[in-house]
């Protein structure tokens, strides 16, 4: 059970807060304490829009411990409109509706619950935009 670990990650998990380097302009996700591009420590919080496209996706049938209740799940690389590519699951979608290049938006879901009595990790997943 890790109380502080998930607590530290909440702003990125729930609000996609990353960093913007005021020296080189790089947009980084998740938040950094030092720019991985230019080494500057002049970073400001930068909230990403949560809009992106599927870069590549796979259906996972054998999961690491803790994710078995979601099998089969879609694990994707999502390219955010600000640039960063992040690893995230897709949700509320069927295989036939998942394709490279499809537009997706961020939603917050239960990613992992530590047993029946541990903390619940809420974080980002992505889903196709709701049909009008």
């Amino acid at each position: 059970m890790h109380f502080a670990r998930s607590w530290r990650q909440q702003s990125s998990n729930l609000r996609l807060v990353g960093s913007r380097c005021t020296s080189c302009g790089a947009i980084l996700f998740p938040e950094r304490i030092r720019c991985s591009g230019c080494g500057s420590t002049e970073l400001e919080d930068h909230r990403l829009s949560g809009r992106g496209t599927i870069f590549t996706v796979t259906t996972v049938f054998e999961a690491p411990r803790g994710f078995e209740s979601q099998v089969p799940y879609f694990a994707a690389l999502v390219e955010l409109e600000e640039g960063p590519i992040i690893c995230a699951m897709l949700t509320d979608v069927d295989r036939e509706d998942v394709s490279v290049g499809k537009k997706v938006t961020m939603v917050t879901r239960r990613i992992l619950a530590h047993g029946d009595d541990g903390p619940i990790i809420y974080a980002y997943k992505f889903t196709p935009e709701l049909a009008g």
Partner: peptide
């Protein structure tokens, strides 16, 4: 609710 949903995620959306 889907396997990754609960009252919190519903309320958030």
């Amino acid at each position: 609710p889907g396997p990754d949903e609960d009252t919190t995620t519903i309320a958030i959306q």
